[in-house]
Design a protein around this nucleic acid. Structure first.
Lengths: 203, 203
DNA sequence: CGCGACGTTGATTTGCCTCAACGATTGTGG
DNA sequence: CCACAATCGTTGAGGCAAATCAACGTCGCG
């Protein structure tokens, strides 16, 4: 690792921040002390609805999903997070309110996570992280804006096509049930879409 | 205004920031110098798709809307911005790319706006604004997350009901065409929903 | 006054869901 | 390591929420 003489458990995160804005040794040390590794086995919960979201999670390895269960018991996946992505219910995390969402592991997953109090303390001790997280939030915001635009103006088939384009690394990693839930359709209907596409592509 | 001995054109914005985090005189001065007032008459564009979004806008008075026009020419409103709210295509603004959205005025509207270069300069000169905009983005992000959750798990009628609860000040200010577009339904169908609700409420 | 946007209502269509059945794959406890 | 269960992906038949198309009265505004 070019930016550090020794590798530590929080190294992937230090590298991630470093790519956005270079950190000085004191700031690297802060990251080391504030973020703690945690392993989630497949199917384990990182957050259950009704609880307050205690951690802001950075995925080092594996895959988490954030979803909502509606009145009828149907799952709706809002976000996947794989290597070098962030996941948390920001609303619950920041307002300290009960979460409406669940987060669980689709694979055995290692995260680096920080508590609310430690994150606030991090902002106080090193305002550079205000900027880093501002940039992070900008990026997440843009993605969500595009997603809302798509949900409004595209058919399920178009949304699937653009999922294929935007997340090619996920299509062989997730089951169709997961993808269908992310797209906002039933697994049965996604299957029909795929059938339709396969037929058209072959002719 | 308790936090300033004299009122200036950017005063509403200084007040807005002040409520989040107190500003010192130098920072107030920076806001005055970087944000400039602009008037949009009803129906005027603040951004047209295909252009780069040049400004980050704070609405002082009036109402703007951000929307997407799909392939079939249908409008989809992603956001309204009234007094003390922010509006811009952040994606285009930050990446300096062509925007897929339009922003125009539903009423005569006064904004305070800042260019990309000036905003970057503001962050450099006063890192406190990194924190202010981080908090702003957190709030926008949470709202959007809830909206996506709703689009997935609620019917049009439920979304209309929750629009009534969350934005009571907007219902007499916007036409049903605008509200329908925001909810993601046709004006005809919103009319039927309202008919249904009126009938149920009276019994 | 006249024209265009609005809001409503009816008839028909359609995109997607529901329920149900089936073979193929995965995984898991004995 | 195998047997059985559970989940997955597919396909068919039927149903429903919302869109589409069309017609019509109202209102605000130039």
């Amino acid at each position: 690792m070019e930016n550090s003489s020794q590798t530590t458990t929080a190294q992937p995160l230090v590298d991630f921040f470093f790519k956005l804005i270079p950190l000085n040794p004191a700031e690297k040390e802060l990251v080391q002390s504030k973020f703690h590794p945690h392993l989630f086995l497949k199917k384990q919960f990182a957050l259950q609805h009704g609880d307050v979201c205690e951690y802001f999670n950075f995925v080092v390895r594996g895959c988490l999903r954030l979803y909502k269960v509606d009145d009828k018991g149907v799952y709706h996946i809002l976000q996947f997070a794989t290597e070098n992505h962030w996941i948390s219910d920001l609303s619950s995390f920041h307002k300290r309110t009960k979460s409406a969402f669940d987060i669980d592991a689709l694979e055995d997953t290692v995260v680096l996570r920080i508590t609310y109090d430690d994150l606030i303390d991090l902002y106080v001790k090193a305002p550079k992280f205000d900027r880093i997280f501002r940039v992070l939030l900008e990026n997440h915001f843009m993605q969500q804006q595009d997603r809302i635009g798509q949900l409004f103006s595209s058919t399920a088939e178009e949304r699937y096509q653009s999922f294929l384009e935007n997340y090619p690394h996920l299509i062989n990693r997730l089951s169709q049930v997961q993808i269908a839930s992310y797209l906002g359709v039933t697994p049965e209907f996604l299957s029909r879409i795929r059938g339709r596409i396969a037929k058209n592509d072959s002719r």
